[in-house]
């Protein structure tokens, strides 16, 4: 796999056209790492001049800010901005809606202004431009797929259609849950919930959402966020449906159909 670092390119006096921001989940979480690899595969196949920060990348600070620790968030943000500005990065793509939101909407307040794009939109553009060519009669043709909206793509940033267009390119039968788009139900991980046990209640949010997704009869639940991935996978397991129903990221679905 070819994943150059920005430092590698800089040593050769080059800069990437786009920086792939991997994020903490994409770097450390075993399931999310497979998404990272799938996305890099696509980048390689398309022949885009990209780079990653490698070990120079650090948490954007999103969970710290949402849990209330503004100091820690700004420390992280400022350090990242220094690194990004140091390499004169102009364009960033990421597979994590939380990183996407933070870098796009919150870093400008602290002196970091970039063109930030989520991989759902990125993939959609590549498909529309004919740069991604999918296999004829791919594995998902006619299969029922449902898409779970990530709050940080959807309501937070009004990105509802791009991920759906990517799925349609697979020739799949896209079935919607009742709560979708603006009224999509959260997977339960946002706002730093990923890093603690849920508060007392009747039910876990991810189980509620997994039930809804399973109710569509889809055999694939498509997600576009590493946290949604964890929550939906656990939800499906909780319902003992992991053998029949797979939770997959958009990048994986596309990489499998190349």
């Amino acid at each position: 796999m070819n994943a150059p670092t920005v430092a590698d390119l800089a040593a050769k006096g080059e800069t990437p056209d786009v920086l792939f921001w991997v994020g903490c989940a994409g770097s450390f979480d075993d399931r999310a790492k497979r998404v990272t690899v799938a996305f890099v595969k696509i980048l390689n196949a398309v022949g885009i001049k990209f780079a990653v920060l490698g070990t120079e990348e650090a948490c954007t600070g999103d969970p710290a800010r949402r849990a209330g620790n503004e100091f820690l968030f700004q420390m992280q943000a400022m350090n990242n901005i220094q690194v990004l500005n140091g390499y004169s990065i102009k364009k960033i793509v990421t597979a994590c809606p939380h990183c996407f939101n933070t870098i796009k909407n919150e870093y400008p307040d602290l002196g970091g202004t970039y063109e930030v794009i989520h991989h759902a939109t990125f993939l959609q553009q590549l498909i529309n431009d004919g740069k991604i060519k999918l296999k004829e009669g791919g594995a998902f043709k006619g299969k029922k797929i449902t898409y779970h909206d990530s709050c940080y793509l959807g309501r937070a940033n009004n990105i509802y259609e791009a991920p759906r267009e990517v799925l349609q390119a697979l020739d799949a039968d896209l079935v919607e849950m009742k709560r979708c788009r603006t009224t999509g139900l959260c997977c339960g991980a946002g706002g730093a919930q990923m890093f603690k046990e849920p508060e007392k209640g009747k039910k876990d949010i991810n189980v509620e959402r997994a039930e809804e997704a399973l109710g569509t009869g889809a055999t694939t639940i498509a997600v576009a966020c590493p946290f949604c991935m964890t929550m939906m996978t656990d939800g499906v397991k909780n319902k003992e449906k992991e053998a029949e129903v797979k939770v997959k990221d958009l990048a994986e679905l596309i990489a499998e159909s190349l």
């Binding site: 949402r66 709050c151 309501r155 139900l185 959260c186 339960g188 706002g191 730093a192 849920p198 508060e199």
Partner: peptide, 11 residues
């Protein structure tokens, strides 16, 4: 502590 910052309420 229970909030997921999902913005459903705001929407």
């Amino acid at each position: 502590n229970a909030c997921t910052s999902c913005n459903a309420c705001v929407e």
